[in-house]
């Protein structure tokens, strides 16, 4: 694969060859897996729901209409109404925005911070590496949901703080991943070559190391979105995340606890939404892993 010519202008060619080919092949592999495609469809469905759903279901998110409390699922209210007479379907649709944005934003934040720390640790090595790696070790020494709860208990409850907490707990995962990638790439011929011809550190990082770490980050990122959504819902369920009247799925579940018997639909649908989205990201993450990086297969 790495038929690297020491010519500068050969560089672009090599890069194209290194990326375009594998990506297309990965897509072909990905398509072959039914589970992965199913996952992707679920995700696209929820993304569309989050983007366009609120335009259709404008009404009834937080609007209370007492006469229609506890309406079971019907033609008028597809998924029924809750204890305030709010339409559960529109709350779930609006809730998809919350869950997906928390999932994506927190993972993007952890990828950025994690990559930064991982690159520094891997590229510069020595004591920088030791310190950063130790910090990662320590953070990973806590069960993740517990660390999130601790952070929220310090910052105070709320959706933003839940997002921050989830972003923080995921940092070491990406940090470690990038660090190991950097370490393995660092010694590659073409990096040594680039260094030899006097390329700047920053340029090497951005034009070589980062693109080469993309695949595992995408895989890990997709799976991390799944856990982030799950953790946000857990915090909402514990009353440490989203606050009333936000239609967050975990919070909706917590509110349904009192009506398990009289109105089980208030519990079933929010939970199902969480499960499906998480399942979607898990399936797609697995599929991506098999497609992009067969070596990572466990």
């Amino acid at each position: 694969m790495s038929e690297l010519t020491p010519k500068m202008d050969g560089n672009i060619e090599v890069k194209l060859e290194k990326t375009a080919g594998p990506w297309r092949e990965a897509w072909r592999n990905f398509r072959k897996s039914k589970a992965a495609v199913a996952g992707m469809i679920i995700i696209i469905f929820f993304i569309l729901l989050a983007l366009f759903g609120p335009l259709i279901a404008k009404e009834g998110v937080n609007e209370q209409f007492a006469p229609d409390r506890f309406h079971p699922p019907s033609a008028e209210y597809w998924l029924g109404t809750d204890d305030f007479g709010r339409d559960i379907l529109s709350r779930i649709i609006h809730g998809s925005r919350i869950s997906l944005s928390v999932g994506f934003l927190s993972v993007i934040a952890s990828v950025i911070v994690g990559s930064f720390l991982g690159i520094i640790a891997g590229y510069y090595g020595r004591w920088t590496d030791t310190i950063i790696s130790r910090i990662f070790d320590i953070m990973l020494a806590f069960p993740s949901i517990l660390l999130a709860i601790a952070i929220v208990s310090v910052l105070g409850p709320g959706l933003e703080n839940a997002l921050i907490a989830i972003a923080i707990i995921n940092v070491p995962n990406f940090g470690r991943l990038i660090r190991s990638k950097v370490l393995s790439i660092k010694e590659d011929e073409y990096i040594t070559a680039a260094k030899a011809i006097g390329m700047k550190d920053a340029r090497i990082l951005f034009s070589h190391i980062l693109p080469n770490s993309m695949a595992p980050v995408i895989v890990q990122g997709t799976l991390a979105v799944a856990t982030a959504i799950l953790e946000a819902a857990a915090l909402g369920f514990l009353g440490l995340g989203a606050e009333a009247p936000q239609p967050e799925w975990g919070k909706m579940l917590a509110d349904s606890k009192a009506y398990l018997q009289s109105a089980p639909w208030t519990m079933i649908f929010p939970g199902l939404s969480i499960m499906l989205t998480v399942l979607g990201f898990n399936l797609m993450g697995d599929g991506l892993r098999d497609a992009l990086d067969p070596k990572m297969k466990s």
């Binding site: 937080n62 609007e63 209370q64 204890d83 305030f84 009333a244 009247p245 009192a258």
Partner: peptide, 12 residues
């Protein structure tokens, strides 16, 4: 009987 729920009505 349920402070949190009544609070949500008041909030609205």
């Amino acid at each position: 009987p349920d402070g949190a729920k009544v609070a949500e009505v008041i909030q609205s």
